[in-house]
Amino acid sequence: MTRHLYAFVAGGLFGLGLLISGMTDTTKVQGWLDVFGNWDPTLAFVMGGAILPMAVAWRMTSGRKPLLGGSFPAKPAPKLGRELIIGSVLFGMGWGLAGLCPGPAMAALSFGGWPVWVFFVAMVTGMFVAPQLRSALDRLVPAE
């Protein structure tokens, strides 16, 4: 129960922060990506503002255990597979196209109207087929 309460609070803070920062507004996201248009610097401040407390949190993990037990996630090996690159490029294309990424899309579900729902359903569909596409990629171009 406590786990779920903390998870709810974390999700709530995430959603609140996305709303206050303006990241649920697609024009601000696309405005930041649009370096040849009327450039909007807001997203850089959001990233900076979020990285600050997270960097402190990561420092606090050393030599400790999570409050609710278990262990902290190990730092992944610095291995840059093609999946990281291909996936990030596909994600970035969609992000620029609609100005939405997974967090803000969910945070905006209650007030964003039908376009956000269409995007959300398509995103969930993409997540559902992604494992098959990943193995198809492995069959087509076997990793070394």
Binding site: G87, G94, W95, P102, F119, M123, M127, F128
Partner: peptide, 10 residues
Amino acid sequence: AGLLVGIGTR
């Protein structure tokens, strides 16, 4: 866009 974001992020 939704498909690209869903597939790409996963």
